[in-house]
Deep mutational scan, measured.
Amino acid sequence: YKIYPYDSLIVTNSISVKLPKDVDRTRLERHLSPEEFQEVFGMSIEEFDRLALWKRNDLKKKALLF
């Protein structure tokens, strides 16, 4: 996945969300650098992957990456 800054990946309720063209809309968190991922989620990507799907989705919603 290509890395993008968190600010360019957050999704708000506005209709005209302009995400970069090559971003996987269903896995926005994968486009964060490991350092920024840790900062946003408070855990590593590996720890995040071990969580239940509902928990990952809940965290993504709170981080505006859903």
Results as ranks from 00 to 15, higher is better:
61 K>G: 06
33 S>A: 11
43 M>I: 07
20 P>K: 03
1 Y>C: 09
6 Y>Q: 02
40 V>T: 05
2 K>C: 07
27 R>N: 14
48 F>T: 00
55 K>L: 12
15 I>G: 15
31 H>S: 03
44 S>E: 11
31 H>Q: 01
36 E>F: 03
42 G>S: 11
20 P>T: 04
11 V>Y: 08
30 R>D: 02
5 P>S: 08
53 L>W: 09
24 D>A: 04
35 E>S: 10
5 P>T: 07
17 V>I: 12
49 D>I: 05
56 R>A: 06
37 F>D: 00
34 P>D: 11
29 E>W: 02
43 M>K: 03
40 V>H: 09
41 F>K: 00
35 E>Q: 13
18 K>W: 08
58 D>S: 11
58 D>A: 12
37 F>E: 00
29 E>I: 01
65 L>I: 05
49 D>G: 08
17 V>K: 11
43 M>P: 00
53 L>Q: 11
55 K>Y: 10
36 E>C: 06
54 W>K: 10
18 K>Y: 08
10 I>C: 08
55 K>P: 03
39 E>C: 12
12 T>L: 14
53 L>R: 08
22 D>P: 03
7 D>I: 15
27 R>T: 07
21 K>V: 15
9 L>D: 01
28 L>T: 03
63 A>N: 08
44 S>Y: 08
7 D>H: 15
18 K>F: 09
2 K>V: 11
54 W>Q: 11
57 N>L: 10
64 L>I: 04
1 Y>H: 12
61 K>I: 10
22 D>S: 04
28 L>A: 03
36 E>A: 08
50 R>N: 10
43 M>C: 07
20 P>C: 04
15 I>D: 15
44 S>K: 14
31 H>R: 01
57 N>A: 08
14 S>K: 10
5 P>Q: 05
23 V>N: 01
62 K>C: 09
39 E>G: 11
30 R>A: 07
2 K>I: 10
41 F>D: 00
16 S>G: 13
25 R>N: 07
24 D>C: 11
18 K>P: 14
26 T>W: 10
1 Y>G: 07
17 V>Q: 15
62 K>S: 09
52 A>C: 11
7 D>R: 13
10 I>R: 12
1 Y>F: 12
61 K>T: 08
55 K>S: 08
56 R>K: 10
47 E>K: 09
38 Q>D: 11
42 G>F: 09
14 S>L: 12
60 K>E: 01
38 Q>F: 15
23 V>S: 03
49 D>V: 05
16 S>T: 11
36 E>Q: 12
10 I>M: 09
59 L>T: 02
27 R>D: 03
58 D>R: 10
28 L>Q: 01
34 P>Q: 14
15 I>T: 15
56 R>W: 02
39 E>Q: 14
27 R>H: 15
34 P>S: 12
57 N>C: 09
3 I>H: 07
65 L>C: 02
63 A>S: 05
48 F>C: 00
31 H>M: 02
13 N>T: 11
32 L>F: 01
34 P>T: 14
57 N>V: 12
41 F>E: 00
17 V>M: 09
33 S>Q: 05
39 E>A: 13
6 Y>H: 03
50 R>C: 11
10 I>H: 04
2 K>G: 07
30 R>C: 07
32 L>I: 07
9 L>I: 06
40 V>K: 05
6 Y>P: 01
49 D>M: 08
28 L>E: 01
41 F>N: 00
49 D>Q: 07
21 K>S: 15
32 L>H: 00
8 S>Y: 14
28 L>D: 00
19 L>S: 05
65 L>S: 00
48 F>V: 01
17 V>A: 14
16 S>M: 09
35 E>Y: 11
34 P>V: 15
40 V>Y: 06
49 D>K: 05
8 S>E: 14
24 D>P: 01
32 L>C: 01
2 K>S: 12
9 L>K: 01
38 Q>C: 11
6 Y>D: 01
52 A>L: 08
8 S>Q: 15
49 D>E: 11
2 K>F: 06
10 I>G: 02
31 H>Y: 11
52 A>N: 10
33 S>R: 05
40 V>M: 04
15 I>Q: 14
30 R>G: 04
12 T>P: 09
58 D>W: 10
40 V>D: 00
30 R>K: 10
12 T>D: 11
43 M>D: 00
9 L>W: 01
7 D>T: 15
51 L>I: 06
45 I>N: 08
4 Y>G: 01
59 L>D: 01
4 Y>S: 01
53 L>D: 10
13 N>V: 09
15 I>V: 14
57 N>P: 00
27 R>W: 03
49 D>S: 08
56 R>L: 02
53 L>F: 10
28 L>F: 02
34 P>N: 09
42 G>I: 05
24 D>Q: 05
33 S>D: 07
58 D>T: 09
37 F>C: 03
61 K>N: 07
10 I>A: 06
59 L>G: 01
16 S>A: 12
4 Y>N: 01
37 F>N: 00
9 L>V: 03
43 M>T: 04
6 Y>V: 03
42 G>N: 14
66 F>K: 04
48 F>H: 01
31 H>V: 01
32 L>T: 00
52 A>V: 09
22 D>R: 04
63 A>F: 07
64 L>N: 14
6 Y>W: 04
11 V>I: 14
62 K>V: 09
7 D>G: 12
25 R>A: 13
50 R>H: 10
49 D>H: 07
24 D>W: 05
47 E>F: 08
15 I>C: 15
42 G>Q: 13
58 D>F: 11
38 Q>H: 13
55 K>I: 13
64 L>G: 13
39 E>S: 13
4 Y>Q: 02
50 R>K: 14
56 R>M: 06
8 S>V: 14
1 Y>E: 06
44 S>D: 13
51 L>K: 05
21 K>E: 15
14 S>R: 08
29 E>T: 00
20 P>F: 04
47 E>Y: 09
11 V>W: 08
32 L>G: 00
52 A>D: 14
51 L>N: 04
50 R>D: 11
57 N>Q: 10
11 V>H: 08
39 E>F: 14
10 I>N: 04
42 G>V: 06
51 L>V: 05
26 T>P: 03
36 E>H: 05
28 L>N: 01
52 A>K: 09
30 R>I: 05
40 V>Q: 06
8 S>D: 13
66 F>M: 10
51 L>W: 02
58 D>V: 11
52 A>T: 13
41 F>L: 05
54 W>R: 10
27 R>G: 05
14 S>F: 06
51 L>E: 06
7 D>P: 09
66 F>V: 08
66 F>N: 06
40 V>W: 04
22 D>Y: 04
45 I>P: 07
37 F>A: 02
37 F>V: 02
65 L>Q: 01
59 L>C: 03
27 R>A: 11
60 K>V: 03
45 I>E: 05
18 K>M: 13
17 V>R: 07
54 W>E: 14
60 K>N: 01
51 L>D: 01
32 L>Y: 01
3 I>N: 05
56 R>C: 03
9 L>N: 00
39 E>W: 15
41 F>V: 02
62 K>L: 10
55 K>M: 13
50 R>V: 12
62 K>N: 09
35 E>P: 09
2 K>A: 13
5 P>K: 06
